[in-house]
Amino acid sequence: MNTQTALVTGASEGLGKSFAFELAGRGFHLVLVALPKTGLPELARYIRINFNVKVDIFETDLTASNSCTSIFKELANRSIYPGILINNAGLGNWSWFADKSISFYKTQIDLNITSTVLLSRLFLEQPCRPEKLYLLNVGSLGGQFIVPKKQVYGATKSFISYFTRSLQLELAGSGVQVSLLSPGGIHTKPELLVMNHSLKGISAASILEPDQVAREAIDGLFKGKREIVPGVLNRLMVFLDHILPAMVKTLIIRKKLRVILKQSNP
């Protein structure tokens, strides 16, 4: 099992990079995908030397029309058949619907939804696939709690959630383990490090470091968990969400919305 290969998208930064380290630390060979000029060759070199595993890289834009297909074609050429796929690449936003451009939403949907669907399909239909396959899709707790300023991002993650759960039903007993990762806030990109910095109390405490999220996610995937919610506080929030009556939740969200509106229109 330890000679298996894991494919990770969005691997140059943040959670994707943590997945790469976590899997390399467990002895898996890697296929890393990220945009060009994001430091992927340096990352690959570092992992090869320090973890003694094979690392193949694809510097490509997953929203380009043929990129998903060509990745798997090229992998087959190299006789690499990944047994693990981590659909991690994603584009977030925290802005009013009118504030982002048409092309931004197109890219966001292409990356978060289309590339995940295509890569999952290509992964499952590999001609010489390993007997046991592991597929991890990165959703978001935001896919469960509906909040303003995350309209398209949240909706793409709801898609991932439905897609993943439905696949779980289809693929039950087929030797394919499909898991959904639903993380809350993570300290990843520099902008987020700055933004998260201003949070206080529970919001600040619930934000996790990417290495912890990656560790819990891979543990959960191999244990066969259907949904992985990293962090005790986040699990508590999901639990509260299940037991609180809808009316109370609506009240909380309305109150929160009022605060957000006040912040943006002082």
Partner: peptide, 30 residues
């Protein structure tokens, strides 16, 4: 933190930034 061999300038950071000093020094470099 480092893994097997000593880090050099082009190497990536492995973990997150739980230590405030390190995180803010990284942001200052940016």
């Amino acid at each position: 933190p480092t893994v097997k061999y000593p880090m050099s300038e082009d190497d990536p950071r492995i973990g997150g930034f739980p230590i405030h000093y390190e995180r803010t020094k990284y942001l200052a470099e940016l």
